[in-house]
Design a protein around this nucleic acid. Structure first.
Lengths: 242, 242
DNA sequence: TTTAGAAATTGTAAAATATACTATAACTTG
DNA sequence: CAAGTTATAGTATATTTTACAATTTCTAAA
């Protein structure tokens, strides 16, 4: 095995490279929610420079001694009060002048969640935190508009090949609710009977002995997504497809 | 529209945040090649500290005034002589101690190419540049081993839903070559006749009036991938599936 | 109590695809 | 020309998808 160079050499090299070590790194979170009708994204209003007063997605600089994955959860919690939810990395944006205060490369994560489970509360330098329909987005801070667009197209693609959608629904849901969600995300229509058959044939849903309540028509059966089964199936080469 | 804060305020904020601006950002490239039998990855041997003498994937620090996308092409060219090929961003690795010389967050890109078209030549601080079979990888510099693993599983996934594989073959190829490639990447076997029918039924291949040469048996027809047709089809909601 | 309305759920026949083979064609080399 | 090797075409069956139609089950109004 090859030896690492002695420590003094490293320090020497590092001095030569000092000009390269003036980047900031930030994390930004695109958090998707769903209100039963529209796909939404969590935005904050900035109470600090730059872009004071602008809408933005939750994000902030990474601490010098902090993994980016860890920073994401801290930042999201600090700004919006959301707890430790599952975030997946989307992409990194590294254009030179994307941040007015210096060179900042941002690592973008995204998450999907059931709106009814969490209520965002602004804190730290976020003066507001609320949900916004995708088609009502206006100008935003930095390149956040572009970031959201990329997250949406990623979501559209991914939702067809992986059972992501369930994270946007309550734990117990009807097939019609699931179908409505897919129709919203993918902007299409499915045949009711065929959608049902397709989804049920995957055996990824556990039918419950409970029915929908408070509807003015025949109530539908409630289902729950079978996470464990899904992981078993993909082990065996199963491909999810809507 | 909200006004940006005055410039002096920004400078003041920046001073408070200076501790956050000591990151380095690097780019790393996982370049896949295919020799007709094995899937391979382009590695260099490091001729500079740290990890002097170790194998690594081509990568280096991003310049202060350089987009990450641009840096990738520069770095790959500087180290291996490869020209401006198409690279796609894979993921970003941001663990605190992944680089011994300081905090370096790396943005990883990957590319697929036909080995016969380009011959890597080491330069700059790369003392060697060569192809290596995936199953012959040993210890590598930094977290590059982990990076390659992630790139492989990404490739395996992606190749099933997008016609990526063609970039690993010569421009003109036979159906058997294409099948062999898919079998290698996905580590399965397809029925010859059925694979042929499936692929041809997508109408993504242009049959040429040319035949394979220099084989000791009946020569096969050559095909070319129809990039234009593919883009038309996905516009209309077409889903590629092997 | 009955009935209309609204979905949920089930069923079905035809069309399209996938699968497992078989048969034949076209080339090279001895 | 025969043997070897792979390409290509074909086919019959099983499976899945699709486009509907029919039936069930609830609420709310009559």
């Amino acid at each position: 095995m090859v030896q690492l160079q002695a420590n003094e050499d490293l320090i020497e090299s590092r001095k030569r490279l000092d000009a390269y070590f003036h980047f900031g790194v930030s994390v930004d979170c695109v958090v998707f929610g769903y209100d039963g009708e529209n796909l939404q994204v969590l935005v904050i209003q900035r109470g600090a420079a730059p872009y004071l007063g602008f809408e933005a997605i939750p994000g902030d600089l990474v601490h010098p001694e902090e993994d980016t994955d860890v920073a994401t959860k801290r930042v999201l919690h600090d700004l919006t009060g959301l707890p430790d939810i599952y975030l997946e990395q989307l992409s990194t944006f590294g254009a030179v002048h994307r941040h007015p205060m210096g060179r900042v490369v941002t690592v973008v994560y995204y998450a999907l969640l059931d709106k009814n489970l969490y209520r965002p509360k602004p804190s730290s330098w976020a003066s507001e935190a609320y949900w916004k329909n995708l088609d009502e987005l206006g100008e935003m801070a930095f390149d956040h508009r572009e970031i959201i667009e990329k997250a949406i197209s990623h979501l559209r693609y991914k939702v067809q090949h992986q059972p992501l959608g369930f994270e946007l629904l309550a734990e117990e849901f009807t097939l019609a609710q699931l179908q409505q969600l897919y129709e919203t995300i993918l902007n299409t229509n499915f045949d009711k009977g065929n959608f049902r058959k397709k989804i049920l044939s995957m055996h990824l849903l556990i039918p419950l002995e409970k029915m929908q309540k408070e509807v003015r028509h025949r109530p539908a059966r409630l289902y729950r997504f079978d996470q464990k089964r899904y992981h078993q199936l993909i082990q065996g080469g199963f491909l999810f497809e809507v």
